[in-house]
Amino acid sequence: MSLVFEHSTLGQRVLFGSGEAASNLIAEVARIGARRVMVIAAEFEAQIAADVTHGIEVALNYDDVAPHVPIEKAEKARAAAAEHGIDLLVSIGGGSTTGLAKAVAMTSGIPIVAIPTTYAGSEATNVWGLTEAARKTTGVDDKVLPVTVIYDAALTTSLPIDLSVASGLNALAHCVDSMWAPRADPINQALAAEGIRALNAGLPMIKDDPDNLAGREQALYGAYLSAVAFASAGSGMHHKICHVLGGAYNLPHAQTHATVLPYVLAFNAPAAPEAAQRIAAAFGADDASVGLNLLRKTLDAPTALKNFGLAEEDIAEAVGLILPYIPTSNPRPVDRDNLTTLLQAAYSGASLEL
């Protein structure tokens, strides 16, 4: 059979080095020629932001950050950027921080330099997300793709172990979804497989020793690969489920992804044997779900959505909200009955019986 596919590669500069974030940022601000820099960082990461930006002139420090980027927060940040004549956004933090910078860039065209402190991966995608009236909307716009990503594993040491685990499994979900998302292709799958391998190696090292920079570097490397694969492959079943749950019920982003992932993998793997085989091989296992669940056991990963705020009575409504967004290209047909079964299992932490 001939190999036929269409692949788009996003243009982005990546600077990777532990302990190098501050010097790399100085160089990037000079290279871009920015004169009015807005630094976006949540209040709890203010010291990290101060340390990283001490070598540049900052016109505005901005800390009004919230998960899932409420539209009100986005509009407030956009107004602040316009008022201060900002010509460069520097986001320092996780997906919520990067997401707010993207919301500003989407309407202003101001470039972003992203400095992630988690494994969320948003920094390497042109995907934006906004929440309005408890409904999360996502889209694609090249204006929101950061022009540069500065990776520094030392900045992730402030992330508690449980959040490191959840965030790393969120990255792993990008990899798995990229194997069968609407625009999946051999390049996406190769990047995703290497991302799984790196995360599978790095996350247990972090769990065993939170100060292990080698493990954190592997996790950051894997998170970047996962996001690049996801940006090209598009949003599959897993992400559609998690985006709806997060926006509608205000569930924590990383923990939701970490909890839902094994259920979507168990659901789709039998209908996508070649993708499942690649996932299994990346884990060094004979079976994709066995490999993932072994890693999850090692990491003491989140197991039930009921622990993060989802109510059992919300499941029926959630199914109705999610179904219209499931890609028609999903390896296995999704209907109200089997999606209800999947969410009930993810809610309780039970094994998936389909």
Rank of each mutant, 00 (worst) to 15 (best):
A81G: 10
G99W: 02
G33D: 11
I279T: 01
A258D: 11
A318I: 04
T341W: 06
Q255H: 15
Y119V: 00
D286M: 04
S167H: 01
T156F: 08
A266F: 00
A46Y: 02
K102T: 06
R336T: 12
A311Q: 15
I40V: 15
A254W: 00
D287H: 14
I56H: 09
A280R: 03
F44C: 02
A275Y: 06
A154T: 13
T138I: 11
L203S: 04
I187Y: 14
K207Q: 14
E353V: 00
L155P: 03
Y325M: 12
Y221I: 03
P182V: 08
Q47S: 14
V52Q: 01
E57A: 12
S351Y: 02
L88Y: 04
A280T: 01
T107A: 13
L251D: 09
P270G: 08
V69R: 02
V104M: 02
M237S: 09
L265V: 05
G19N: 00
I326C: 05
L261G: 01
G168T: 00
V4G: 02
A34L: 09
I112S: 05
R216G: 09
G85T: 07
D177V: 00
D162N: 13
L191A: 08
W180D: 11
I112L: 08
M179P: 08
A304M: 07
L130R: 10
S23R: 15
L169H: 05
L155F: 06
N293R: 15
G234S: 11
N338A: 10
V58G: 06
L169N: 02
L172R: 09
F230Y: 11
A201F: 05
L299H: 03
P186W: 08
S167I: 00
L100W: 00
V319N: 04
A81L: 06
A81P: 02
G202E: 00
D337A: 14
H54V: 07
L261H: 06
E6C: 03
A285N: 00
K76L: 13
L169W: 05
D335E: 12
S91T: 15
Q255W: 06
N126Q: 14
D142V: 01
Y119M: 09
V4F: 12
Y263H: 03
Q218C: 01
W128E: 05
K76Y: 07
L251G: 07
I322N: 06
M38T: 03
S235K: 03
N170E: 03
A120R: 02
A34V: 07
Q12A: 05
K102R: 06
V14E: 09
F267S: 04
G11L: 13
